[in-house]
């Protein structure tokens, strides 16, 4: 199954090393594949360097595309992670 959802990066430092690492770590728990899309550019969501080089400071609109059997719960957890600003501050 393929799911697509829009997110807005809300934590102050944007998708920096710690936040990107959390996304990769989350992805390791699922069979589905995550892709992140910004301004038409799509990168592999299991690669920390690809996420970093996508360059997403605070306020960036990012599209997440998840392909695979467990895409639904993966998307939900990803949404939680971004909504909770990766656990940084309030």
């Amino acid at each position: 199954m393929e799911l697509i959802k829009e997110f807005r990066i809300g934590n102050n430092l944007g998708l920096h090393a710690r936040a990107a690492a959390k996304i990769v770590k989350l992805g390791n728990q699922y069979k589905s594949q995550l892709f992140l899309v910004k301004d038409g550019q799509e990168v592999d969501g299991s690669s920390i360097l690809s996420i970093l080089t996508l360059s997403c400071p605070k306020g960036t609109e990012v599209q997440a595309r998840i392909v695979g059997d467990d895409s639904e719960s993966f998307m939900e957890e990803l949404g939680n992670l971004i909504d909770q600003k990766f656990g940084e501050g309030k």
Partner: peptide, 12 residues
């Protein structure tokens, strides 16, 4: 990385 606008992320 040089192409990244955000200084903090670029410095990674």
């Amino acid at each position: 990385f040089k192409q990244i606008d955000d200084e903090y992320i670029r410095n990674r």
